[in-house]
Design a protein around this nucleic acid. Structure first.
Lengths: 190, 190
DNA sequence: TGTAGATGCAAGTAAGCACTTGCATCGCAC
DNA sequence: GTGCGATGCAAGTGCTTACTTGCATCTACA
């Protein structure tokens, strides 16, 4: 039977509340209130808090694909794809993503939920390795390259939610890639 | 009267436990156990969990000064000072620092404790502004420059504690500064 | 040696939390 | 209209946690 409040509305409420409060601090009561349903109904429909988060994350990342399957000869273009993806992700879902990343370390519950989105990083690694082999990037562990590329972006999104002195302007992905490449082309001039 | 277990030992235990568990998950019982004292003694000596954290943070940042008072004509040297400082901070206290940064957003308790260490960022801002005026750095909000500089470093320290695929090698501060400058000198060649 | 203050120990208090349950109600298919 | 399944409501259960308390014990210092 159809529910009065559709699942997707509840999922959005979950992610919003968690973005604001963190997973541990966000109570099922406040989630239910934000979703506009009763707390008991929440458990009847989604069984547990962990399962609720899992379904919310899954349903939310379904429409958020990274188109990276065939890395080409253009480093800048491929890196721009990656940076664009994360810029969009942090702009729309930055609160949840960073919150969950942090809490995953302490909470096996949260960590279990994040395995699916994490598989994405594997594909990013492959693109970076591809361009390292082509001689277009400094050879180093691909995660290092990734953090040097996306680090400035992530830190700004991260800080935007903590530090009110930080400007709210979103980063320009093309500038990020250009500046990154100026520092990470191999055999650069001293 | 002298305590059986000196304060500094308790403070180290607090920061260690919080680094591993996060502030909210770390119970006063586990902190007491790690410090080798009784939980009741913990409250008799330090009043509350929040006050305990405050004293621990304060006593720990006292010996951790950033020597930045007189920015000079050498951008690279001043940036290296900053990067070295944060590299050292994240290597020795990375777990606590990043944990507290994240939790500060949700917990007024934690946020209140972090005001002192945050004043450091103001001095970093001034150094960046100084070199922007000298024409040695792209003109932009200083926090943006800061995140572009330290972001790669922080993300690696951050990920090192979450993601076991990330290499444990600490970053090389000189390489970080060199690569950063290649992307952030004004009027660069296309 | 004697004493005061700090500690350990064990039990307890009060609050918040995820999750449950019983019952009245509401909306929809027939 | 009637019945059924999903909902709202209110109360409750059991657990964890920060924090307290009363008492025995230890240690430093006179």
């Amino acid at each position: 039977m159809a529910s009065r409040v559709p699942d997707q509305v509840v999922f959005d409420a979950v992610l919003q509340v968690i973005a604001e409060q963190g997973y541990e601090r966000s109570t099922t009561r406040s989630i239910a209130e934000a979703a506009g349903i009763n707390e008991a109904t929440l458990f009847r429909r989604f069984t547990s808090k962990e399962n609720l988060l899992r379904q919310a994350v899954r349903s939310n990342f379904l429409g958020f694909a990274l188109d990276l399957d065939t890395p080409g000869d253009d480093v800048a273009a491929d890196l721009l794809t990656i940076v664009n993806y994360y810029a969009r992700l942090y702009d729309t879902r930055g609160g949840v993503v960073l919150t969950l990343m942090r809490e995953a370390k302490f909470s096996p519950e949260v960590a279990a939920v994040l395995t699916e989105p994490e598989s994405l990083l594997g594909r990013v690694d492959e693109v970076i390795l591809h361009h390292q082999r082509r001689g277009a990037l400094v050879v180093e562990p691909p995660r290092h390259t990734f953090f040097a590329l996306v680090g400035p972006l992530m830190m700004r999104a991260f800080a935007r939610r903590v530090d009110r002195l930080t400007t709210q302007t979103p980063a320009d992905p093309e500038a990020v890639v250009r500046r990154f490449l100026n520092g990470h082309r191999p055999q650069q001039a001293p």
